[in-house]
Design a protein around this nucleic acid. Structure first.
Length: 875
DNA sequence: CGAGACACGC
DNA sequence: GACGTACGTGTCTCGA
């Protein structure tokens, strides 16, 4: 069977351009549309495996349709130059793929496709059309299917006769009539004003065509509608004509010319390289070739015996661990680079060498590293002190631009044009294939890493200084990494039996609920499968479908919440979900990560990940232990002090983000509220609803709280509406009223967006930086998102700065006073300590003082301190 | 093995 | 005129 794939080139290019962020190459060539277009081609070739293929483009500005209606596409904005400059590259891509492309004066790509699809169907081809334009659905027939881009570019819905009927309830031919009636604003086709998709479909069901409507116009129900139709009869006929795809365009390309040939592999490789499509190079199997030609062996010494001459100051050092999790993991090799040379030290040699250990522990001998914490903690587990780290290139890279996809050595080296370092994945493999390579390979790899640290240290240091971030680096993040390392290494004690017991109870309850659900549903199924659950709820039990996801019915908690009183099984499912989450993530999850030797839990804080400057925590994530619902909160009973008699002390900042907002916006009203220590949500409610304190209802306070939440997290009117279960309009109204009450905040929001547009980035109080390239995007979504980010990042990021500062100050103070208490965890606005009995009073006061004085603001900082026998009791 | 749905914290 | 909307981590299912 012959199979012809026809692609609407302009339409796909447009979709790709607006769907993807504005990527560009080192040379400044924009590539997002080319990239999207290319991934789509790859996918089509893979999935369709066509015998014939052709991409049609529009030619010129005017077409025969302009003779009918000179305003055709009159409202369409000019193609942005960032996109038009990409179009020639797409033709290059097609050429390399050996795919035909075609255009004719006076006709649109649609018409070429329509003509060829019709011809091909007659010549026994199976035809598939790829486009982002719904108009093309009129071409669907027995032999012609239309793949319509859905979200992004590679995601498509394939329309055949059935699907068109299902979605619209009409035949493909009637699509034209639909457009005739409703028009198309994007093409500036007028249609009948006041008639939208719904009305058009209703009319077509009754009268079949535009002609049918007018023939029996007296039978149209609704006086207004009839009037509108009568007044715009001419427009309707013209619109139908405009929307009709020409199937007899003067196309002079034969099917022979569309035969799909093998791609020109070399041309593709060089093109992808030029465009910097590294992930696509992988897909066409070109990455090995690329890397090999770059690497030249570095001169290294494999160390037999460590001498102090090798370990001069400063030295760059790499302590390599295969495992992502470095707690008590094997060190597979160590490399050192300095002015004496590049050294590879086999692990055993290093760990048993007194020279090495002495050097490592010597604060005076400078070390430059990548991911200091990783080295310090892993050597710590081996009983080796590692001090004197003055430069961590990972943290530097993160501070310079947190948005970089990763801050590992291969990445940093590549970004900064340093000597090339292979990716860990290329050297070690991934998944099952991960392994330690031969020593020649390993030593090269590690030596290259160490050498690139030396090579780049100064460059990044200068960049930090230029950005006024050196203090942030040197005085905050570097010392913080040591503090975090100690917290991780120390770990948190847990009551294993408590967890096991809770788990047993949960498992039993879950079994009961499961049985009840199966009983109520009348069949046994996997409640954890949203797919099966959806089928049971919406097909078997016929509950109303509120929302669909792209794979089926949505069964998320907020949807189930709305179905609560429709069927008693819903409540049970919600409960089952809640307990299931507790059991699998928290009980079983935590039991799994209890360390075999220490019996404690050792998380890893990622200090170089979030875009705002917050930390994150993994394996396990100790920043999302339940607290909101009592059943989950009980998990905190299992977090206990290591030493008997000690307590868990939790200190959290009260409203730190809103206080930061008051400070940076200088809003008088907000500053007053905090200076007078008011309940901020009540105060907001009073202002937004124009009521006195006594008149504030709990509902009002709840709304005000959600508004404050929205301000802090940078959510949109939509987000707020979802949160409160109100309409978007109402949400916008609340936001407006908020800004009326806090005009300084509004001014700040406007200024920060302007600043972001001018600089391309925003900063926090301590000069943390976040770039927002999308702030000037023409894509509404991307731009709006960047604008909200501009407003939010200084707030959330400054709060992160402040608590980090408090942590560093606290560690310093505790060391100075030689306290035995320990910092265990940080949860964004909260610090958790283990406090020995005779330090309770001292620590309670000290923690509060240190947190509240971490920085000086226009409003007071407030920290609440609580302690108890377990984390649960520290409330 | 990766993507998607879902749920937890701030 | 629609777009599809806080972040980060982890678990489970499901289809390739």
């Amino acid at each position: 069977m012959k199979k012809l794939v026809l692609v609407d080139g302009n339409s796909i290019a447009y979709r790709a351009f607006f769907a993807l962020p504005l990527l560009n190459t080192d040379k400044g060539v924009y590539t997002n549309a080319i990239y999207g277009f290319t991934t789509m081609l790859l996918k089509v070739l893979e999935e369709e495996n066509p015998t014939h293929m052709m991409v049609a483009f529009d030619a010129g500005k005017t077409t025969f349709r302009h003779n009918t209606y000179k305003e055709y596409k009159g409202t369409r904005q000019k193609t942005p130059p960032e996109l038009s400059e990409q179009l020639p590259f797409m033709r290059d891509v097609l050429k390399a793929f050996n795919i035909a492309h075609y255009e004719i004066e006076n006709y649109e790509a649609d018409d070429i496709i329509g003509t060829l699809a019709t011809k091909a169907a007659d010549s026994d081809f199976e035809v598939k059309v790829y486009t982002g334009d719904k108009d093309l659905l009129q071409l669907v027939s027995e032999k012609v299917k239309v793949a319509l881009t859905r979200k992004g570019i590679t995601n498509v819905d394939t329309y055949d006769l059935n699907l068109v009927d299902e979605k619209y309830g009409i035949t493909p031919k009637q699509i034209i009539d639909m457009k005739g009636l409703m028009g198309d604003s994007s093409d500036n086709i007028p249609g009948v004003p006041g008639v939208g998709e719904k009305t058009a479909l209703k009319l077509l069901k009754q009268f079949e065509t535009v002609e049918g409507v007018y023939k029996e116009i007296e039978n149209v129900s609704g006086k207004k509608l009839k009037e509108k139709l009568e007044a715009n009869e001419e427009s309707a006929y013209m619109s139908k004509k405009l929307a009709t795809i020409e199937i007899n365009a003067p196309v002079d390309i034969g099917f022979d010319e569309m035969k799909k040939e093998e791609p020109n592999h070399e041309a593709l490789l060089s093109l992808f390289k030029e465009l910097e499509f590294s992930s696509l190079l992988d897909r066409i199997g070109g990455s090995e070739i690329v890397e090999k030609e770059e690497l030249e062996d570095l001169e290294i010494t494999v160390v037999e015996e460590i001498t102090s001459e090798m370990l001069v100051s400063p030295s760059s050092i790499v302590v390599e661990i295969l495992d992502e999790n470095y707690h008590n993991a094997d060190i597979i090799g160590i490399s050192v680079a300095n002015k004496k040379g590049n050294y590879y030290i086999p692990t055993e040699k290093a760990l048993t060498s007194d020279v090495f250990k002495e050097w490592a522990a010597d604060k005076q001998r400078e070390k430059w590293v990548i991911d200091a914490k990783r080295g310090v903690v892993s050597l710590g587990w081996k009983g080796i002190k590692f001090e004197g780290v003055t430069f961590d290139i990972q943290i530097a890279s993160y501070l310079i631009d947190p948005s970089s996809s990763s801050h590992d050595m291969a990445d940093i080296a590549k970004r900064n044009n340093a000597i090339s370092v292979e990716t860990d994945e290329a050297v070690y493999g991934k998944g099952k294939k991960r392994h330690i390579p031969a020593v020649e390979v390993l030593s090269q790899h590690l030596a290259r890493k160490a050498a690139s640290i030396s090579e780049l240290k100064e460059k990044l240091e200068t960049e930090l200084k230029d950005n006024h971030q050196y203090e942030l680096f040197k005085e905050l993040e570097m010392p913080l990494s040591i503090v975090l390392g100690k917290m991780e290494r120390n770990g948190v004690a847990v009551d294993k039996n408590e967890l096991v017991e809770m788990g047993e109870k949960l498992t039993a309850t879950l079994k009961t609920i499961e049985a009840e659900i199966h009983e109520l549903a009348g069949l046994s199924f996997n409640i954890n499968s949203p797919k099966q659950l959806g089928e049971v709820l919406f097909e078997k039990l016929n509950l109303p479908v509120i929302k669909k996801t792209k794979t089926g019915y949505s069964t998320s908690a907020d949807i189930l919440e709305k179905l609560r009183d429709k069927h008693e099984v819903v409540e049970k499912i919600l409960h089952y979900r809640q307990l299931g989450k507790l059991n699998s993530t928290y009980i079983e999850g935590l039991l799994k990560v209890i360390h075999k030797e220490t019996g404690k839990i050792h998380t890893i804080f990622n200090q170089a990940l979030t875009q705002t400057g917050r930390l994150s925590s993994t394996e396990p994530n100790l920043q999302n232990i339940p607290i909101r619902l009592e059943e989950g909160r009980k998990i905190r009973h299992a977090f206990i002090p290591e030493q008997s008699g000690s307590v868990i002390l939790a200190a959290d900042y009260s409203q730190i983000e809103l206080r930061v907002l008051a400070h940076i916006s200088k809003d008088k009203n907000l500053i007053d509220a905090f200076v007078n220590d008011l309940d901020i949500h009540t105060k907001t409610a009073m202002d937004v609803f124009h009521v006195t304190e006594e008149e504030v209802t709990s509902q009002m306070r709840r709304t005000a709280k959600a508004v404050n939440f929205g301000i802090v997290y940078g959510i949109s009117d939509y987000g707020l509406s979802q949160n409160l279960g109100i309409t978007r309009k109402e949400a916008q109204e609340f936001i407006n009223r908020y800004f009326e009450s806090f005009p300084g905040v509004k001014e700040y929001m406007e200024n920060i967006v302007r600043e972001a547009k001018e600089n391309g980035y925003v900063t926090t109080m301590l000069k943390r930086r976040r770039y927002l390239p999308e702030i000037n995007s023409r894509n509404f979504n991307q731009r709006s998102f960047a604008e909200r980010t501009a407003m939010n990042t200084p707030i959330q990021g400054s709060a992160a700065d402040i608590i980090k500062k408090a942590m560093v100050n606290m560690a310093e103070e505790m060391e100075k006073q030689e306290l035995k208490s320990k910092l265990l965890l940080q949860v964004h606005d909260e610090l958790i300590f283990e406090v020995v009995k005779d330090e309770i009073d001292l620590m309670s006061k000290l923690v509060r003082d240190v947190m509240e004085s971490a920085v000086e603001l226009d409003v007071p900082l407030k920290a609440d301190v609580e302690y108890g026998a377990t984390w649960y009791d520290a409330k």
